[in-house]
């Protein structure tokens, strides 16, 4: 019985020391291996987001109002034609 208690005590000590040491090693790995890696290889997703944002802002700033108006006009025209077409189609279907 006493022998078992001593063994349990040793296990408590050795076990806790080992668990702390092992997880401590992981802290070391995260701080000194992973964190520098993260700086070296940042997420590509974040980069593309930034690019998109930048390109949008340059567009709205750098494009002349005339071109914007032309594109708007073309889009509206296309939409009108498209809806007309679809209306015609539905009419045709209804007639059939």
């Amino acid at each position: 019985m006493n022998q078992l208690f001593i063994e349990a005590g040793t296990l408590l000590f050795v076990g806790m020391v080992f668990v702390y040491a092992f997880l401590g090693l992981l802290i070391f790995i995260i701080n000194f291996v992973l964190a520098p890696l993260a700086k070296k290889f940042p997420d590509p997703v974040v980069q593309t987001k930034v690019k998109k944002f930048v390109s949008k802002s340059t567009l709205s700033n750098g494009v002349s109002p005339a071109i914007v108006a032309a594109i708007t006009g073309a889009v509206t025209q296309y939409r009108q034609q498209h809806t007309n077409l679809s209306i015609n189609k539905t009419h045709l279907k209804a007639k059939q």
């Binding site: 291996v33 992973l34 964190a35 890696l37 993260a38 290889f41 997420d43 590509p44 997703v45």
Partner: peptide
């Protein structure tokens, strides 16, 4: 970052 999560 993704790299960290893969290496961990």
């Amino acid at each position: 970052t993704k790299v960290e999560k893969i290496i961990f």
